[in-house]
Design a protein around this nucleic acid. Structure first.
Lengths: 157, 157
DNA sequence: ATCAAATAGTTCCAAAATGAACAGTTCGTA
DNA sequence: TACGAACTGTTCATTTTGGAACTATTTGAT
């Protein structure tokens, strides 16, 4: 007894592989965020809003997969600090429109230029790959993510 | 003003791609863990110990990238619940040897067979890929992770 | 027009995660 | 052999996280 080794299956390898990349990348995301006075969710939200002129909080939620409560609080702080502007959608008083303020844009640009920040590092990381490798990576990730996502509504009675 | 869209660079695509896969996978890891009365770190530790007959806590730390404190507490609970045995290394009273107990092994086997658990799902996810795709994924991940890891000791004066 | 169900977002709070300080051990070297 | 530095693991305090209940609004069916 106590002698058996559980074999390392491909599935476990997959999990570990993602875990490794993620731990190391997350570390830098965190560093970058903190260095600029932001939490990780805050930084994530800022990045997401930046890529669209206007975007509803709902959409940000869908893109970032942040839980509603986390998202709501992150937005709140960002608004208070003047990095984001919040305005009601024209004909829908339920949804919130989020817009990057000038201050937010400035901050984000600064972050992108920081030596050793995630942004720079991840650009360089992509540079290590051939175009084909990069495309295949994204494609494979899509396959895997989609698969897991379809498993969501399973198992409810 | 407020009109500019920040372009989505390859680096950001990379980050997002990993974020998406991770959020969806993590969700299932969490579900599986909770369904079996474990926290995510606890489940992670259990899996890691299971793949070696004996392993030091230090090594588990290196493999899982869990912070020391998190690891220590996770191990503590697992030991209390009798899933893991802890014993001092022969000639080193500092390091801790961790061993999966029979009870732990039993639990882990049960988890592996659970329909809809991460284990099953990730095996199936791998099944969606060709062998070549899978190998290339792991290889690319290694490239990226190694790159980030080398960036660790940078920036200290 | 009314009312129930769905939806967007907020608030609150308990659980989880982690950094930092600490205790004990080992190692190197003088 | 003695002492400082490095190392392994624990403890404690704090922050972060995210589920659940709630409010307000919208939608849809009757």
């Amino acid at each position: 007894m106590d002698k058996e080794k559980t074999p390392i299956t491909p599935g476990i390898k997959l999990l570990r592989s993602f875990a490794r990349v993620n731990k190391t990348m997350t570390k830098f995301v965190q560093q970058t965020a903190i260095a600029n006075g932001l939490s990780v969710p805050q930084y994530t939200v800022l990045l997401t809003v930046a890529s669209e002129k206007k975007i509803t909080q709902k959409t940000v939620g869908e893109r970032t997969f942040l839980p509603k409560s986390t998202l709501s609080q992150a937005v709140e702080v960002l608004v208070q600090e003047g990095l984001l502007k919040r305005q009601q959608v024209e004909d829908n008083r339920r949804e919130m429109q989020l817009i990057l303020s000038d201050k937010g844009l400035t901050l984000l640009k600064a972050i992108h230029q920081q030596e050793g920040g995630v942004h720079q590092l991840s650009e360089k990381a992509v540079g290590l790959l051939t175009d084909q490798q990069f495309e295949e990576l994204l494609e494979t990730h899509r396959t895997i993510a989609s698969y897991f996502e379809t498993q969501n509504e399973q198992g409810e009675s």
